[in-house]
Every structure is written in structure tokens, then in C-alpha cells.
Design a protein around this nucleic acid. Structure first.
Length: 431
DNA sequence: TCTGGGGTCCTAGGACCC
DNA sequence: TCTGGGGTCCTAGGACCC
């Protein structure tokens, strides 16, 4: 059947309902039908089952408050390994229908099913619902599903009938639906942009698509804003990234330390720990980094950092730490209270594409590499931080070290300055 | 509720070159 | 000569996302 008028492209968005809590209930039947929240490991809720929501618990509530309004609540620590496994199953199921699947996040994916209606002899709606049914039956969790001519509209659609809903949003329905969608709820328009738009009288997404291209230019809105504007009109401006080789472009490890500190050695050791973690991630991805940036965050929430290039590509801490140490004083100042540090490894390449530098630094690092491989193996087997570098010793020896080395996830509370709060669970560090 | 952790992409403006 | 114009590349920083 010809649906090319309603769907010049047919994009489906799948969004797992209460993903982390739902996975917990799928794993353990005893949790089904009960109020479950995750986030116990850090005392702040990260995901709530629908039963917990029905009893009045909200995301962002302190754990004590949750227990008060909902005494029967079951609080669990996040099991990120399990969530990743469920995410991979989700992608795999979607891929049995089409290869054009974007693995967008731990609980979401997009599929481009354009043309499948002809080849399968089914409507796009039927196909989207068939995928949804297969996901729900195979995983034991429900999904919000949206079908639309663009990614941005598919996101709008999947939000509309949660949980376990399906919404089709063909071109003919765009105006009706966008009239009751606030600009603030549009994917791609964050706190800053939606506040600006509202100041210009744009309240709903319909107001937004009725503005002209000239109007956007006149007010200095740039490409991402225009792409969103096109997408909302049903013109796909964003393509799916379906690359099977979804390798990261950068890898970062940052950690807040409590209490904040002025101690130079302690702060450097924190950074050293960040570097170890980042190197381990890079090795796991089978990559090496040839550039990096590191920063310190003060108690006043200002950032001080530098970006630098490495003499070659590395996946082990020694040379990286050497480079950071050489420039540490550019960001560290005596007497300032620091609350966090972080490192980002950049210019990542697959190990096979790395060209050795002229001065032998690469060859030297190759010799040491065996040591870090062994370390990875031991840490995998006996738990993290079984083996660590001397320079990270101080960080690990602190009394609260066990909290700092834990997997943490969190959320940003809704704030008065118009910044969007996080309302979807997301992945922390998976080990 | 004083505010976590990990990513991506875009752009203004400076450096540099012809 | 003291005065141009224009192009490219890079980076810091800002915006967004989950």
C-alpha cells in the first residue's frame, strides 16, 4: 500500500517504560506488581516502577521521602550489566525487522522502516506494532512506541501514550499534535533555547513550525534549531546513525570527591584514578588516544582545564600521566577548594590504525602494555581496584573511597534558570 | 534538594596564509 | 610601504542528549 504521502520516511522510536525498574521486575518475578525503585547505591532514585509512581513517588524525591509515602517500596541498587544486556536484546530484536536501527541509548532506539510496508504487505502501523509486540514478549517489559516521518516527530509520538502505548503521527496529524506539545518538550530544544523561544512568544511546537525560515535567521538561531524546525514539519533532517562500528569519539571519567580538597597530591591522585579508568575503557573498546583534556572543578563550580596532544596514541596511564603532570600547575592553584576532577581521552582510533611516532615513544609503551592487560584481567576477576597504580593510592586509601569507586547514576533537579531536568534513566559506568 | 556522570555536535573567533 | 581582502584550520566553549 502507498503510504508515501503520510510517511515520506517511516521512522519508529522505541522507548522502554521505567526501563531500569522494569528490567528488575523482568529478572525477578517476585518484584512484579510491586513498587520498585532503583538508585539505592547512591540514595537518590533513578527509576521507578509504575506501582511506585501510582503510590505517589516521584523521580527526584529523596529516598527517605519515598519510603515515607510508599512504605512497601523495594529499593534496589542499579544492575547496569543487566540493563546493558536488555538494551542489546532490544537492538537485536529491532534488527530482525530492518538493519537500519540506531542504538540511541540504553533504553531507546530508532528504526527506519521505510519501504517495508511494500515488501511485507503490511502498513507501517502494523509493522511498528509487530516490533513492539515482539519486544514486549521477548523482554518482558513494555515500550512507548512512536511512528512518524522524522526522528524528532517519532520522539514526540512515543511520549504520547506511555506506558505501553503506540502513537502514529502521519503528516496529516502534525499540526493537531504539535498544538498541544510544549516547545520545552521537544527533543533538541533544551532549557536555554526553549526559554529564548518562549520569550519570543513561541509556546507550543505548532507556534514554532509556523515561524518562517527568515524569522529563525533574523533571531540568530543556528543549524541545530533549524534542523529541529524542519523535522517537526515532517522533513527528515536528521539521519539515523546505524554504524555497526559505533565506536566512541571520546571517553571520559570524572568524579566528585567529598569533602572538597585543597591538597595538591590528593587532587592529582584523583586525576590519576580518572586516567586509569579512562584507559581501561579505551582498551576495552580496542582503541588508543592521541589527545586529551583534563579539568578541575572548584567548590564554586568553575572549571579549569587544558587540552593537549600526546606524542603518540596510548591506552595506558604512564605517558598520559606524565603529560598531565607537566601541565597540572596550569589548572591547579594553591589554597583553592576543588570538588571534582575529570579527564577526557580524545582522538580515539582503533589500535590497528595507530602509526608509531618517530621517537620510539610508541615502541616503549608497547613493552609496558603487557602489564596493563594483566591488570585488566585481574580486576575483571577479583573486582575493580584490586590492582591500581601507585599514584592512585591516595585516592583509594581515603575512608570514603568505596563510595567513590562505585557505579553512580544521578539526575539534575529541575531548576529555576530554565534548565531541563533529566527525566529519562540513563547509563552510568558499566563494568 | 545547593547541584552526578558520560557523551555528541556546532560555531564564533583567533591564527595563519596567500 | 602600515595597508587589504579572503580563505582555511583549529580550539574553546556552549548547547544539547540520556
Amino acid at each position: 500500500m502507498d503510504q508515501s504521502g503520510s510517511y515520506p520516511r517511516a521512522i519508529v522510536h522505541f522507548d522502554g517504560d521505567s526501563f531500569f525498574a522494569s528490567v528488575e521486575q523482568a529478572k525477578d518475578y517476585k518484584l512484579r506488581g510491586k513498587p520498585v525503585v532503583t538508585g539505592g547505591e547512591r540514595g537518590a532514585v533513578t527509576s521507578l516502577s509504575k506501582e511506585a509512581k501510582m503510590l505517589g513517588a516521584h523521580r527526584g524525591m529523596p529516598m527517605q521521602e519515598i519510603r515515607r509515602v510508599c512504605p512497601s517500596v523495594i529499593v534496589l541498587a542499579g544492575d547496569y550489566t543487566a540493563y546493558s544486556i536488555y538494551a542489546k536484546r532490544m537492538y537485536a530484536i529491532a534488527k530482525t525487522f530492518t538493519t537500519k536501527v540506531e542504538e540511541y541509548s540504553i533504553d531507546e532506539c530508532f528504526a527506519d522502516i521505510t519501504g517495508l510496508n511494500e515488501s511485507r504487505g503490511q502498513s507501517y502501523e502494523e509493522i511498528a506494532e509487530a516490533i513492539q509486540e515482539k519486544l514486549e514478549l521477548s523482554l518482558g517489559i513494555t515500550f512507548g512506541v512512536g511512528l512518524a516521518p522524522s526522528k524528532t516527530l517519532a520522539k514526540v509520538a512515543s511520549k504520547r501514550n506511555k506506558p505501553a502505548g503506540f502513537t502514529a503521527l502521519p503528516k496529516e496529524e502534525i499540526e493537531r499534535v504539535l498544538a498541544d506539545t510544549e516547545i520545552y518538550d521537544i527533543w533538541g530544544l533544551g532549557g536555554a533555547l526553549s526559554t529564548r523561544l518562549r520569550g519570543l512568544g513561541v509556546i507550543t511546537a505548532l507556534d514554532y513550525i509556523q515561524k518562517s525560515d527568515a524569522w529563525l535567521k533574523e533571531h540568530g538561531f543556528a543549524k541545530p534549531v533549524r534542523d529541529t524546525w524542519l523535522e517537526l514539519q515532517g522533513y527528515p533532517a536528521l539521519t539515523l546513525s546505524t554504524g555497526a562500528h559505533a565506536k566512541p569519539h571520546s571517553v571520559m571519567v570524572t568524579r566528585t570527591f567529598t569533602p572538597p580538597s585543597t591538597d595538591k597530591d590528593f587532587i592529582f591522585s584523583q586525576l590519576s584514578k580518572n586516567v586509569e579508568g579512562a584507559c581501561a575503557k579505551v582498551r576495552r573498546a580496542g582503541m588508543k588516544a592521541s589527545a586529551l583534556s583534563f579539568y578541575l572543578k572548584t567548590q564554586e563550580f568553575t572549571y579549569h582545564g587544558v587540552q593537549l596532544d600526546l606524542s603518540a596514541a596510548y591506552d595506558a596511564p604512564p605517558e598520559i600521566l606524565k603529560a598531565i603532570r607537566a601541565r597540572f600547575d596550569e589548572v591547579y592553584a594553591e589554597g583553592i577548594l576543588y570538588r571534582a576532577s575529570g579527564v577526557t581521552l580524545r582522538c580515539l582510533r582503533g589500535v590497528d590504525t595507530v602509526t608509531p611516532d618517530l621517537f620510539g615513544a610508541y615502541a616503549e609503551s608497547q613493552e609496558k602494555e603487557g602489564v596493563f592487560r594483566a591488570q585488566d584481567a585481574v580486576n575483571r576477576r577479583y573486582g575493580r581496584n584490586t590492582i591500581y597504580l601507585g599514584s592512585s593510592m591516595e585516592a583509594l586509601a581515603r575512608p570514603d573511597a568505596k563510595y567513590r569507586t562505585k557505579v553512580v547514576r544521578g539526575f539534575v533537579p529541575a531548576s529555576k534558570d530554565g534548565k531541563k531536568s533529566l527525566d529519562i534513566p540513563h547509563l552510568g559506568v558499566v563494568h
